[in-house]
Write a protein that binds this DNA or RNA. Sequence first.
DNA 1: CACTTGACCTGTCCGC
DNA 2: TGCGGACAGGTCAAGT
Length: 288
Amino acid sequence: MPELPEVETVRRGLQELIVRRSIATESHDTVKGFPNAPADVAAFLIGATITTVRRRAKVLLIDLSSDYTLVIHLKMTGQLVYRGEQVFGAGHPNESLIGKLPDRSTRVTIEFTDGSYLYFNDQRKFGWMRLMPTVEVPNIEFMKKVGPEPLEADFTPQEFAGRFMRRSKTSIKAALLDQSVIAGVGNIYADESLWGAKIHPNRLVNTITDKEFQVLYTELREVMNLAIEKGGSTDKNYVTAEGKRGSYMDFARAFRREGLPCPRCATEIIKFKVAGRGTHICPSCQLL
DNA sequence: CACTTGACCTGTCCGC
DNA sequence: TGCGGACAGGTCAAGT
């Protein structure tokens, strides 16, 4: 579920909501990777203060005053929701998305000294979390292999096109989803940017022209920036740090719009599988 | 080696 | 209404 725009939205929310709060208690059930070193929880998590919240690709980095960092991947259904004064539950506008917290999908509960909470919810348990020294974060396998951030100001169209050369014989969609090529692209924004660039997802990378890479670069950045502006895409599970929906799906042109008219030419959007993933295209605009 | 397919989990939706 | 099967936004290990 959460791709770069969703994780960035959560990051911005947490930066506002939890920085300078101190951790009083922590409890959890099964979460992959946590606690990797149980003694570290008492030594470096309890009593620590949140200093900043960063993001790399789809990974959230919650830095602590102990010089340790909580490294969190939400995978498909992870949520990080802060609860201060507001009360979720029956009648609340977000009830259908997060219910009353904690609930049966709550994996980790962090209580701050002021009595507010941060919940890590994850219905499908694919997400993971690690507590580790901040200086060690760049050394984990994911960080070593992940590609460049596509929204950085100094990320050029030339660098974008060049990254794909490592996957020249696969489909453009499979390459877009490969985190070692470009960081943070997932199924939603792969489909949306390919629609924007009028490129069929099954086109092989080595058939994509320089001009097409240029357009794809622009479309990908525009669609991701718009998605951040809209607070991300909520289909089923994703919510912001405040427990709210993201509204990008109201602006989607192809993703999850099968049977509806293409906004450009009114041809019906169709759905099929590419690289094992549900894929949406306009069959008139995106030719093989 | 490059690339594709299953596995990881739970919940929901759809057709019989 | 009940039940089996397909499917869901991510990533890795295992297989071709």
